[in-house]
Computed example of a mutant assay.
Amino acid sequence: MNGDNVFDEFYDNTELEPGGANGTVLRTRDVVVPHMPGLGRAWQLVYTTTTTFGNPVTASGIVLEPNPAICNGAITRPIVVYCTTFHGLGGRCAPSQLLVAGTEPDARGIAAALAQGWKVAVPDGIGLGITGAGPHHFLAAHAGAHAALDLARAVCTHGLNRAPVAVWGYADGGRIAAAAGELQPSYAPELDLRAIAAGAVIRDPGALITGLDGGPWSGMAFAAMVGLARAYSHLPVDHLLTDVGVRAVTEASELDLTRLLVEYLAPLSVWCERPDPWNDPVWRHVLSHECLGAKTPLAPVHLYHGLLDTLVPIESARTIFAEYISRGVRVSWSEYDVPHLSAAALGLPDALKALRAGFARPPDRGGSPAVT
């Protein structure tokens, strides 16, 4: 990934009027995705979605359709919305671009879903991909969930047949997947959502940022400040920044993850007027609004995590698991005696099993969920 932004008119921003239908496809184009076994056709799209607070915006993504030979003659293929890990705040690090370049870090999970005969839709997320719309709304779970659910809407309405949908992701992608499960009953009730698979879920961004700040992952803590500030730009979230901090935010907004980790190793206090910016009342409000686990998914949820995860401690997902159980969510759990990156790979078979079970289950017709 690099932070250089090459102009591509396909990704031009489109001004939208309030009141339009979410998930409306604005334009598409076929693309070639190299090194993707089982791929039949791939196409990028630009579609409509909404920000955290319901403002209409354009977003981009990519859809990968399996080779018909592995679909067993199925007319309506299940759709997996695959939410990738955090790639950066700007530049050419949108998944829809990285897949075409052959450099997408999450290609293994995407290929695994494609090999099941499922159609895979990958959202770029709000503020990433679309020219001039950044920076990416990193850690803004509501915004990410809107983009994921509206991509499912776009893919469903773009074809002739409505299809069952699942959402899958890991780390920040797992956070978005879990948020999509929580928001779908109110935001996109017409979707036939069958399952959620979410690994290394970040429940509380405040706890994550505090744990990362000042360590080798400080660049992600800084990126969190930038992404959440963008998502909550109607609030005075930048009032703590020094002049140096303001310039740093501007520069970081165009960087991918690699450069963020290299160039923003300093603690957040270096860029702010107080050593504990997250204890500011405005930021406490933002972070409390972004905690997961307060709403009830109706679709079954599979959570998985690494016991030795030092990036996203396992207590984060265990808290969500307990919350879901207390409200009767159909939730399953897998844990592995490995660190963060290894758990992403080890969790693939269990995640695929959970998604297959979801697609095999008849759609819900209402009623209360039950624990499994």
Rank of each mutant, 00 (worst) to 15 (best):
G3N: 10
G23V: 13
T24M: 09
T28A: 12
T28Y: 10
H35I: 11
G40A: 06
R41A: 13
A42E: 09
L45M: 14
G54R: 10
G54P: 09
T58Y: 07
A59C: 05
C71V: 15
F86H: 05
G88S: 10
L89W: 12
R92K: 13
Q97N: 05
L98V: 01
P105C: 09
A113E: 08
A113M: 12
G117L: 01
A121C: 09
P123T: 00
G125V: 00
I126S: 07
A133E: 14
P135T: 06
L139P: 09
A152T: 03
A152C: 02
V155R: 08
R162F: 11
V165N: 04
D172L: 14
D172K: 10
P185A: 05
E190P: 03
D192Q: 11
D192G: 07
D192H: 06
L193S: 04
L193G: 08
A198D: 12
G199V: 03
G215F: 02
A221P: 06
F222T: 02
F222L: 06
A223D: 05
A224K: 05
M225D: 03
A229N: 10
D238A: 00
L240Q: 10
V246S: 10
R247G: 14
A248W: 01
V249H: 06
E251Q: 14
L260P: 07
E263V: 02
V270M: 14
P275W: 02
P275G: 04
L298T: 14
H305Q: 03
S316G: 03
A317D: 08
T319Y: 00
I320D: 13
I325N: 00
V329P: 07
S334D: 15
S334L: 00
E335C: 08
V338M: 02
V338R: 01
L348R: 12
L348Q: 13
D350T: 08
L352N: 03
A354S: 12
R356S: 11
A357L: 04
F359M: 09
A370L: 10
T372Y: 01
